[in-house]
């Protein structure tokens, strides 16, 4: 049952990200729902399940993106593992924590992505892309409150074990 819920959410996110988010892009930047879902899941799940889910989210992102296949999968497992390592030392249920973690993880993920990208392609426009990273992170952080609220509602209504246990 949890896997059906997770895959349904990933499919919904993929559809929204590929069709609707283009309309709310600011300065050519759109929020990254995959990263937000990764942070949500990593903060609310055990390490093993979190890693499996992060792999699936990264794989879905790879399927709907141009470029090296498998790059997002690897990066999502890495950044998801980083969240799982620190989540016991932070209060993940607080909105401020969720926003901060999303901001930091967005920055780390985007820098790692650009680092790998710069190895693959010689792009003269790398500096503008690096400067975009903080803006993407800010946009992701702004989306966190409604996105986490929706995901919480969705997970609670489907009786997702880890979230239900914490809300008791």
């Amino acid at each position: 049952m949890p896997w059906i819920t997770i895959i349904s959410v990933i499919l919904c996110i993929s559809l929204i990200q590929t069709t609707l988010l283009q309309h709310i892009s600011v300065l050519g930047i759109q929020p990254d729902l995959f990263i937000i879902f990764l942070v949500f899941h990593s903060l609310n799940s055990k390490l093993e399940r979190s890693l499996h889910t992060n792999w699936t989210i990264g794989f879905a992102k790879d399927c709907f993106s141009e470029g090296l296949f498998g790059l997002n999968t690897v990066l999502f497992v890495i950044v998801g593992y980083m969240i799982s390592m620190i989540k016991d030392n932070i209060y993940g249920r607080h909105l401020a924590t969720q926003i901060s973690v999303t901001f930091i993880i967005s920055i780390i993920y985007n820098f790692l992505f650009l680092f790998m990208f710069s190895i693959s392609f010689t792009s003269a426009g790398l500096l503008p892309m690096v400067l975009k990273c903080p803006l993407i992170a800010i946009y992701n952080s702004i989306i966190v409150p409604p996105a986490f609220w929706l995901l919480n509602k969705f997970y609670s209504s489907f009786g997702f074990p880890s979230v239900r246990r914490k809300t008791r």
């Binding site: 993929s14 590929t18 930047i29 992102k61 993106s65």
Partner: peptide
């Protein structure tokens, strides 16, 4: 019918 999900890549479906 669709756009790239990455902020750093530009492609359409």
């Amino acid at each position: 019918i669709g756009y790239d999900v990455s902020n750093f890549r530009k492609s359409i479906i």
